[in-house]
Design a protein around this nucleic acid. Sequence first.
DNA 1: ATGGTCGGCCTCCGA
Length: 257
Amino acid sequence: MIKIATWNVNSIKARLEGVTRWLEQARPNVLLMQEIKCQTEAFPAEAFEALGYHAVAKGQKSYNGVAVLSDQPIEVALEALPGDEADEQARYLEVLTQGLRLASIYLPNGNPPDTEKYDYKLAWMERLGDHVAGLLASEQAVVLGGDYNVIPDAVDCHDPSVWANDALYRLETRKRFRRILNLGLTEAYRALNPRSRAYSFWDYQGGAWDSDHGIRIDHFLLSAQAADRLASCSIDREPRGWKKASDHTPVVCEMSA
DNA sequence: ATGGTCGGCCTCCGA
């Protein structure tokens, strides 16, 4: 069994202790990280190598940044999402490891809507769809994990009315997300848990964690060759309750080898 | 209950 996790850590420097603690207890074969919030050279690869992981990162100053850890060697395939040479935000890292093609994805938040930030989100989703179409045509086992900043359905948030016009939930966002899924991807958590309510993010503000006012925005999207091997997908709420927690918690899926 | 979210960073932006 191959265990793969995705976790928006909200700064790897602030979260190093919590992430290493979770790696030691959960022992995933692969961890996809988002929002490392450091430059590529500053990524603390040694701390993960000491735990038996290979590590690659694509970072930038202050914002965004994605990384991949694997207990097998990693070959980097892409350090940016194709389709816009002018886009300098570190939001996409595609690798080959464990006999799989994996990507760590940090899709733009897009708030506030009706601004250039939202336009950038929609354009990024369009580029992701174009790239995914090419990946699917290759008929490989592909695992695309990350913070998609998309609440797929009403069941994926505590109160849809609160999110109605938010960039994470508004109809245009969900339509674009479905368009990507409809290329032939399986959304792992929802495919295996058809009606369960589980969240992967709780805002730091307003006691959202204590009242369980969360949203599910961290997802695994799988090609058919990967989905055929999917055994489980679950959300590990525990790290969200720790001191100095990220506002996201890990999502984990298991695939037969 | 004299507080109220966090992280990075140059004092405000992004989430």
